[in-house]
Simulated assay, not measured.
Amino acid sequence: MAGFGVKLVRKVSSTRAFAKVAPHVIPAFDRTVHRLTRGKVLPSARMLPGVILTARGARSGLPRRTPLACMPEDGGTWLLIGSNFGRPGHPAWTANLLKHPEAEISWRGRDIVVRARLLEGAEREAAWAAALAFWPPYASYQSRVEREIRLFRLHRTEEP
């Protein structure tokens, strides 16, 4: 995305209005397009890299598919940020990963088996600094909520 486009998207995505509307529109649109294109297209990934996370529900145990922005890391891991667009309460997918850390992601059209780990302490602080450098609007999301935004690192568990 060009510099102006990135700045505009960052500004819009930092607003409370975006936080009200986006959670109802973006994931549904992403899921539909991703399914219709057999995993080849994830519209929100035009703004930020994204995955479709499939994790078992914390209470139901049923598979739950959630489109999420992610931060790919050197070494083949991914950082997931439970910002919930700066809304109160942790997003449901974070509870799912806490209870069932074994999951799968669709990354660039490939299904990859992963294990999620909640980051804490100094490791979380370093990851949070990297996330803010990657996508500055996360700072405005954190400023609007009292909870600490959960960060998860996904590690591949299958052979490449």
Rank of each mutant, 00 (worst) to 15 (best):
Arg153Asp: 02
Ala130Ile: 06
Leu8Cys: 08
Ile112Leu: 11
Pro160His: 07
Leu8Gly: 07
Met1Tyr: 09
Phe152Arg: 01
Gly57Trp: 13
Leu98Trp: 02
Phe29Val: 15
Ala95Asp: 14
Leu48Val: 12
Ile149His: 01
Ile52Met: 15
Gln142His: 07
Val33Tyr: 09
His34Met: 09
Glu146Gln: 13
Thr157Val: 14
Leu53Cys: 09
Glu73Tyr: 00
Arg64Asn: 07
Trp135Phe: 14
Met1His: 10
Gly5Asn: 09
Trp135Ser: 04
Arg38Leu: 13
Leu53Phe: 09
Arg110Asp: 12
Arg117Phe: 04
Ala122Gln: 10
Val9Lys: 02
Asn84Ile: 05
Gly109Pro: 05
Ala116Phe: 01
Leu151Val: 05
Lys99Trp: 01
Ala133Gly: 13
Phe152Asp: 01
Ala122His: 05
Ala69Lys: 00
Pro137Phe: 07
Ser140Gly: 02
Glu159Gly: 03
Pro88Gln: 07
Ala17Phe: 13
Pro63Gln: 02
Tyr138Ala: 03
Glu123Gly: 03
His90Asn: 15
Glu120Ile: 03
Ile26Thr: 08
Gly75Ala: 05
Arg153Cys: 04
Arg87Gly: 04
Ser106Gln: 00
Leu119Cys: 03
Arg108Cys: 05
Arg144Leu: 05
Gly109Ala: 04
Pro23Gln: 11
Ala131Phe: 05
Gly109Val: 05
Pro91Leu: 10
Pro160Met: 01
Val12Cys: 06
Val6Arg: 15
Arg150Pro: 11
Gly61Ile: 10
Asp30Arg: 06
Trp135Cys: 07
Arg46Tyr: 13
Ile105Ser: 00
Gly75Cys: 03
Pro160Asp: 05
His24Gly: 13
Thr94Pro: 07
Ser14Thr: 11
Leu97Glu: 03
Glu148Gln: 12
Ile112Val: 14
Leu48Arg: 09
Ala58Cys: 08
Arg64Val: 06
Glu158Thr: 03
Val33His: 08
Ala127Glu: 06
Ile149Trp: 03
Arg153Glu: 12
Glu158Lys: 04
Arg35Phe: 06
Gly57Ala: 12
Arg150His: 11
Ala127Phe: 07
Ala58Pro: 10
Leu68Ala: 00
Gly121Lys: 06
Ser14Gly: 15
Lys7Val: 03
Phe152Lys: 03
Phe18Val: 07
Pro49Met: 06
Val113Cys: 13
Leu68Ile: 00
Trp93Lys: 10
Thr94Asn: 10
Lys40Tyr: 02
